[in-house]
Each structure stands twice: as C-alpha cells, then as structure tokens.
Amino acid sequence: MTSAILVSILMTLVAASTPILLAALGELVAEKAGVLNLGVEGMMLCGAVAGFAVAFSSGSTTLGLFAALLAGVATAMVFAVLALSLNANQVATGLALTIFGIGASSLIGAGFVGRTIPRLGPIFPAALSEHPWLRVVFGHDILVYLSLALVIGIGFFLRRTRPGLILRAVGENDASAHAIGYPVIAIRYAAVAFGGALAGLGGAYFSLALTPMWADRLTAGRGWIALALVVFSAWRPGRLLVGAYLFGAVATLELQAKAAGVSFLAPEVLAMAPYLATIAVLTMMSLGRRTGRLDAPACLGKPFSAV
C-alpha cells in the first residue's frame, strides 16, 4: 500500500466519521440530562435540507451551516414540547420525530432535487490543506475540527464544571435536582436543543460537505448509528470519538478491500460489520459490569413533572 492511498483512506475515514460523531455528541448531552431522543435521524435530515436550501439560495455555506443548526434546534423543540412539557412517551415521540423529519425534509427539499453547490472546503491555506501528507491533519473542513473540539469541550463540561454536574444530576436523579431547586425541565430543554443543533450540523455535513446535494433520505440511516454509538461509548465523549472513528474505519476499509479485490468475506458480511461490532461491544460491556445498566443515566427516558 503506497502512502498516497493511506493518506486518502485516512481522509475518507475522517469524513465518514464526522457526521456521526457530531450527531452522537449532541445525543450524548441530551441523554446525560435524562432525555432519550430517538429522533436523531429526523433532526439530521431537517438540518441537511435546511443547510442545503439556504446555502443554495444564498450562495454561502456558512449561512447554510447556521440554518442547519437552527433547523436541528427547531425540530428538537417539537420533541421537547411533546416529551418534556406534555410528558409524552419519549420513545414514541422520538420515533415519530424521525418519521416526521423524513417527510418534512422531503417536502422542503422537493424544489432542490438535482441541484448542487460548491463543497464545504478546508479551512487551512492550500499549502497545508493540499500538502501530500500534511493534509491528513490540515486538510479538513471546519466541522471536523469543531467535532474534535467538542469531544474535549463536552468531556470537560460534564466532568469538570458545575453546570455539567447539574446537568448530570438532572439526568441521574431528577426529583433530587428539583428538590434542591434546579429547573429540571428548563435544563432538559437546553440539552435537547443542544442535541438538535449538533444533529442538524451532522446532517448538514452530508448535504454541504460529503455529497453536496439534496436527495430524499440523504443521511441513509446514520442517525441510528449515532444513537447506537452513544450506548457503545457508555456516555463518555472520549469513547464516542473512538467508536465513531472505528465505525468510519470499518466502513471505509470495507470498500477499500473490495476495490483492491480482497474478498476474504462476502460483501454482505462486511456490510454487517459495524452493527455486529456495536452488538459485540455492548455485550462485552454488560458482561464486564454485571450491573446490567451500563452507566446509563438513571432517569434516562423517564418523564418528569414537578408536582
């Protein structure tokens, strides 16, 4: 394998991992606050279509990114009102949000099918971003660096800051947090909004960076992988990074192996690999702990109402 191929594989790997990492980081924060939002795929699609529509109409990918972020938040707010204010079942509401997102994005995107825009480019000057091997580090777009910064930022926020502690308290024991005087619902709203914003950006990574176009169901199920990764990571940002890049690596290497004519496994088996890996890791984790709860926030998915 020549170094050029290796560099190219690494670039593809990073690009394949980034949208999943973004969406999963957002979901991680929401879940840490005790909210299970299964609507990641729907929020990603709304972000993807809004990002593309605005970038196409305005000619600015930066505006597109902001639109995607806002669209993600707006979609998340639909969930928040139903699940947090009206105490609807979170699982059912999240699933409904995904189905809603598929339909809404398809409706909004109908006029943009078959159009394209300039790809979201690298942020460093060409001397670095197009260098034969330095581009592995410097050749990426803003969302790649943002996602990596967020891994550190969110980890620090949750572990080392007071607001992070409060957010975790809300997710672990909402009644106690409420008794001490913290606004449980408001904190959960904020966490869900943050999750929506990152899911929106993750979706926009498809329509602005990976494949600059809009087509129905553009994200093709990546939102579900992001959800699985949050569990896989045991709600830790560092492990989430590993998981997302592992997924990106398996997906990329699968295709590279096929292109190289290496057929050690049937393509169908290779296509199953990322999902098998998730199941395997989940099983190992639960065997290792024997607590059966995998460090999940204790109030995850439970409705809260201050009586």
Binding site: T211, A215, T252
Partner: peptide, 27 residues
C-alpha cells in the same frame, strides 16, 4: 473493470466512499 458492491441502491455517502476507494486503487 473493478467493481465495488455498495450493497445498497441508495446511500449517497457510501456510494461516494466506494468511488473514492476505487479511485485510490487506480481507477
């Protein structure tokens, strides 16, 4: 002619990655 089976009719990101892999391998 090198073929990569994407095992899907429609998954834009995966289709793009398959194309990139083929280009990396000399197509």
């Amino acid at each position: 002619t090198k073929v990569v089976w994407a095992s899907t009719w429609y998954d834009p990101a995966k289709e793009a990655d398959a194309a990139k892999a083929l280009i990396d391998q000399g197509a």
